[in-house]
Design a protein around this nucleic acid. Structure first.
Length: 450
RNA sequence: UCCUCGGUAGCUCAAUUGGCAGAGCAUUCGGCUGUUAACCGAGCGGUUGUUGGUUCGAGUCCAACCCGAGGAGCCA
């Protein structure tokens, strides 16, 4: 092989039909028939079938191709041919091979092109990443992340990131990871929201975007110990304004994926008809009405897909369980906002509804198809004395939250914000069974390695 | 923390009432000019999660423990 040969990415093979090129990558799979060997070559940008015919390459190259093990790294040189029989990504093009150079012969590869168990795949996550579905899901994730930043950046939001090492629980409810901060206990952040609230007074509209940590013993398809969350916070924004921002952002993300991740969604065999409906406005459901809907379904002895038991009844004032959320989401063909949750089940900083303090100006966005809550947000309490009373009610130390109360003492304004979980959003868009496939190295309960 | 299910070859699984530990794939060898998880023939591959118990005999029954999966609670 010559140093000056043209190495091209598989994704752009369409531009090189009938030209001689070199592909550089890994042998994803191999099949053949006597004097014919089909090499499925993966280069990170796509997958291409390279056809090696005895007599068209040197005898040594033919034998090397025939003997090459799965995941060996190699160079293949040949002429790009359009052929509808050719599998791959994007597919329809194959390489009529003139030369094969084996770079590294792989040891027997543990992951085969067949069904494997979850435990085995997770133990081999570093290799599982090479599989087509993982490739597709992580590319969608990257597109989702870029869409989030694109939309927020062009809508006047400033990215101001917040600390990961924090001195206290922000919400006081969930279990945090504790670390030793030079002899003082500190915690891995579960949210950047309180800091975001400080930042809006300087920048108006901000968002933080980074990893978030929850030490809960949650072991479900929707939970990770470490996940990424984007948290926009907006000054001079009430609950209605917040919902408008959320539905625009979510719709933008989905539409970008539909337009630019067609190959990836095809690999994932995602039925995109439901996604195509995702555009503003999203339905809005008051908590009171949600409770009524649930209990009416309970009367009818309904069950929820994915849950073996009958839909359990709910008392006004309780938070929804997973079956309730799945049931509510199933009533609509788009993501649905549920707003005005009971004050007692939500965080201390949420603004109570005027004249009805038992509910607060909060909103969760429930994704369709059982993917659960993908955003949670609220209008924030903007009155200093009311906030102090709320802190006392929740037994939270004033000395820790003094700076947070200050924000209400120096030019307080109506403001709102929300957090969106990247992994749940990606899982929903990709139609994945479990959020673990939406991040390269998921941190799950009892899964810390690789 | 609780509930349910599971652990047999590198992987995916089978093994009847408690009676010789099996198959496909991977790997090795041979054959095949259009394969898509190819196909045909041969070979290799085992401390049945661990410990103890019942039994003439345990993959199978009992107990404890370990590990995994899904779910509840909690959450994004």
């Amino acid at each position: 092989m010559q140093r000056d040969e043209q190495v091209v990415p598989i994704r752009s093979l369409v531009d090189f039909v009938d030209q001689e090129v070199t592909l550089r990558g890994w042998l994803q799979a191999k099949t053949g028939k006597g004097k014919l060997v089909f090499l499925q070559v993966r280069d990170g940008s796509g997958l291409c079938q390279a056809v090696v015919l005895r007599g068209k390459v040197s005898e040594a190259a033919f034998e090397a191709a025939k003997a090459a093990t799965q995941e060996s790294s190699l160079l293949v040189r040949g002429v790009v041919k359009a052929d509808p029989r050719a599998p791959g990504l994007p597919g329809g093009y194959e390489l009529d091979v003139h030369a094969v150079t084996l770079l590294n012969e792989a040891d027997p590869y543990p992951i085969q092109p067949k069904e494997h168990g979850v435990e085995f795949l997770m133990q081999n996550r570093h290799l599982w990443l090479r599989s087509s579905r993982q490739w597709a899901a992580l590319r969608v994730r990257a597109r989702v992340v870029r869409a989030i930043r694109d939309w927020l950046d062009t809508q006047g939001f400033l990215n101001v990131d917040t600390p990961i090492l924090t001195p206290a629980a922000a919400e006081g409810t969930t279990t945090l990871f504790t670390i030793d901060y030079h002899g003082e206990p500190a915690y891995l952040a579960q949210t950047g929201q309180l800091y975001n609230e400080a930042n809006i007074f300087a920048f108006g509209k901000v968002y933080c975007f980074g990893p978030t940590f929850r030490a809960e013993k949650s072991k479900t398809r929707r939970h990770l110990q470490e996940f990424w969350m984007v948290e926009p916070e907006i000054a001079f924004c009430d609950l209605d304004g917040l919902m408008e921002i959320e539905e625009q952002l979510v719709s933008y993300i989905v539409q970008r994926c539909l337009e630019e991740c067609t190959h990836e969604l095809a690999v994932l065999e995602r039925d995109t008809t439901a996604l195509q409906r995702v555009s503003p406005p999203f339905p809005r459901l008051h908590y009171d009405d949600a409770v009524a809907k649930i209990n009416a379904a309970v009367e009818r002895h309904e069950t929820v897909p994915g849950y073996p038991d009958l839909l359990p009844p709910i008392r006004w004032g309780d938070d929804f369980g997973s079956p309730h959320e799945t049931f509510l989401a199933a009533q609509f063909d788009k993501p649905v906002f549920v707003h005005h949750y009971p004050t007692q089940v939500k965080a201390f900083y949420m603004e109570p509804e005027a004249g009805r303090p038992e509910v607060c100006r909060s909103v969760d966005l429930l994704a369709p198809e059982g993917y659960g809550e993908i955003t949670g947000g609220s209008e924030r309490m903007s009155d200093a004395s009311q906030l102090v009373a709320a802190l006392e009610r929740h037994h939270l130390p004033l000395e820790t939250y003094g700076w947070y109360v200050d924000l209400r003492r120096y030019g307080s304004v109506v403001h709102s914000g929300f957090g969106m979980g990247v992994e749940r959003t990606v899982a929903w868009i990709c139609g994945l069974e479990h959020v673990r496939e939406t991040t390269a190295f998921p941190r799950l309960l009892n899964v810390l390695r690789p």
